[in-house]
């Protein structure tokens, strides 16, 4: 049986891990390679590293940073930010990433998802989707360029399309909840897991171990991603996994960590 995953997320800007609230007010949280190795040792099942200023700055992913992190890590590494082509994806994989997340470029060019899946296999193509609740009708809209640009795309429709094009996994972030530690948007998770059968990583709002349990048990997520609760030492990966195990969710014990 596949185990559910707990994934610390490293948002990187200017070569440093940062964390903000609703994608702004960024604060420094340390060196990416250092933090990644520390989280792996503490029981993380995977690390997500997002170069959050690559798309807004219109540049490619920081490959040196990816390689430096990959060398110190013995759990899977997913890298996103600034990948616009199969060539860009190849470079990130060669630098040591196991999976690559595409976001802004895939919105502009959905065929990118299919091309990447065809060349590298869908198992290493993650489509990251940043969404914001639309006040009136309860739906969610997709935003591009790190939450800066409205796209008019409906989140559920876009996720379904991305999965159809070859996404091997969806990393779904609620911008409304990002950094707020107020709990995941369970309605959003349920709406998305109802329409796609590729694995879903829930992101945005993790505040307590109980939130992580709810995202998996009630939201149907395969993995929970969190940043600020781990960076600020509010909760440990061990305490999250203990809560998941107590709720009957199969997890990898932290004693097996790297």
């Amino acid at each position: 049986m596949l185990l559910r995953r707990v994934i610390p997320c490293l948002d990187v800007a200017g070569g440093r891990v940062v964390k903000g609230t609703r994608f702004v007010d960024l604060r420094d949280a340390g060196d990416p390679a250092e933090l990644a190795a520390r989280y792996a040792a503490a029981g993380a099942d995977e690390i997500v590293l997002l170069d959050i200023t690559a798309a807004p700055e219109g540049r490619a992913t920081l490959l040196e940073l990816v390689e430096r992190t990959a060398r110190r890590l013995f759990v899977p590494l997913t890298v996103g930010g600034g990948v616009r082509s199969t060539a860009g994806m190849r470079a990130v994989l060669r630098a040591g990433a196991d999976k690559v997340a595409v976001n802004t470029a895939a919105i502009a060019d959905p065929g990118l998802i299919r091309r990447c899946a065809r060349v590298f296999g869908r198992q290493c193509v993650v489509v990251a989707v940043d969404v914001r609740a639309v006040s009136a009708d309860g739906g969610w809209e997709v935003l591009a360029r790190g939450g800066r640009d409205a796209t008019g795309l409906d989140a559920v429709a876009w996720v379904r399309r991305a999965a159809g094009l070859g996404a091997g996994e969806i990393l779904l972030t609620s911008i409304d909840r990002d950094g707020t530690r107020s709990g995941f948007d369970l309605d959003l998770l349920r709406a998305v897991t109802a329409v796609v059968d590729v694995p879903l990583i829930a992101s945005g709002g993790a505040g307590t171990p109980a939130d992580m349990v709810a995202a998996i048990v009630e939201g149907g997520a395969d993995a929970v991603l969190a940043a600020s609760v781990f960076h600020r030492g509010i909760h440990s990966i061990a305490s999250v996994k203990a809560a998941l195990a107590a709720a009957g969710v199969p997890v990898r014990p932290v004693e097996e960590a790297a």
Binding site: L2, R5, R122
Partner: peptide, 10 residues
């Protein structure tokens, strides 16, 4: 139930 088989397993 799901392919590819991706993730942690015993």
């Amino acid at each position: 139930p799901r392919l590819p088989h991706i993730g942690w397993n015993a």
